[in-house]
């Protein structure tokens, strides 16, 4: 396998992990965040500092990176997740930007805006595939469990959810913390892939991209999220030669999806028996309509 293909596969894994993180929060719990690049940054910097300064092995360091993102998410999530809708979205921009600004200004630890070089290239093909496989397994299991149903209940109607005995505040936090862990690990893997990280890599544009991938795939569909992440990553690579048009096309696609198919590629359905059943129903309905049409 050529180095180029390998690089793309690694990038696919990293983007997919981060997108799954945003998906559980935005697609399944209905919390719209525009600051998740901040959690990637926390994961990336924690892991970089642990491996470079303290010589920690990369596997525990990556996990600690994810854990650090969780801790930060918990600390800022408990008070701010009381906010609903657009208020949280704007607050999350503030949170994400605040994380970036702190990294830029905390020179002694993060080496500031010019970036953190010399990170060991621990994110090999197999490491990224292994992380992706384990984390995807966990995520799909989770959404197919009582927790997934609870998240969706909070998303669809938080008043009804709390009157079915769900402590909605607790589930919102849980969802945020899980999503921060995924983004933290993705950030840590990105650091090990590029061997260099810089606060500006984790700005609001990156956050927007994460959220758009999830919307593109279909809010409330985890397989849609993976499909969305793959398509966006590959298209981004495809348009690299004409990079100035890349973002333009990307923005236009985002608008077009909302105009043409706002529910995303997969709607809220997963690749699986349920989608199949739905398609079958649709098809049989159409047949029935046709036969009725003929008989009358």
């Amino acid at each position: 396998m050529s180095g180029y293909t390998e690089g793309i596969i690694i990038l696919l894994c990293i983007n997919a992990i981060a997108a799954m993180g945003v998906s559980v929060l935005t697609g399944f719990t209905g919390i719209f965040s525009l600051g998740h690049a901040g959690y990637m940054a926390v994961g990336a910097y924690t892991t970089a500092i642990l491996t470079v300064e303290y010589g920690v092995h990369y596997i525990p360091a990556i996990l600690l990176g994810g854990a650090m993102a969780m801790v930060i998410a918990y600390v800022i999530g408990v008070p701010t997740l009381k906010l609903m809708g657009d208020y949280y979205a704007i607050a999350s921009i503030g949170l994400g930007e605040a994380i970036r600004l702190i990294l830029e200004n905390w020179q002694s630890v993060t080496r500031g805006a010019r970036g953190y070089p010399g990170i060991e290239g621990y994110t090999t093909l197999y490491v990224s595939l292994a992380f992706f496989a384990v984390m995807a397994f966990g995520m799909f299991n989770l959404i197919n469990s009582r927790f997934g149903r609870a998240f969706k209940a909070c998303r669809d109607d938080y008043i009804a959810a709390s009157l079915l005995g769900f402590n909605t505040a607790r589930y919102r936090i849980l969802s945020l913390v899980i999503s921060a862990f995924y983004c933290g690990v993705a950030g840590a893997l990105l650091g090990g892939f590029l061997s260099f990280i810089q606060p500006i890599m984790f700005d609001m544009i990156k956050s927007t991209e994460l959220t758009s991938v999830v919307v593109f795939g279909g809010l409330g569909s985890m397989s849609g999220t993976l499909l969305g992440a793959s398509i966006i990553t590959l298209v981004t690579e495809l348009f690299r030669p004409i990079s100035q048009y890349r973002m333009l096309i990307y923005g236009a696609i985002l608008v077009l999806i909302m105009v043409i198919r706002p529910e995303g590629i997969m709607g809220q359905y997963e690749l699986g028996p349920r989608l199949f059943r739905r398609l079958k129903d649709k098809f049989s309905f159409r047949n029935r309509d046709n036969s009725e049409g003929r008989s009358s």
């Binding site: 927007t208 959220t211 758009s212 919307v215 973002m247 333009l248 990307y250 923005g251 236009a252 696609i253 985002l254 608008v255 077009l256 909302m258 105009v259 706002p262």
Partner: peptide, 9 residues
């Protein structure tokens, strides 16, 4: 989301 797209455009 469409407005985020328009902003990028």
């Amino acid at each position: 989301i469409a407005s985020m797209g328009m902003s990028i455009v």
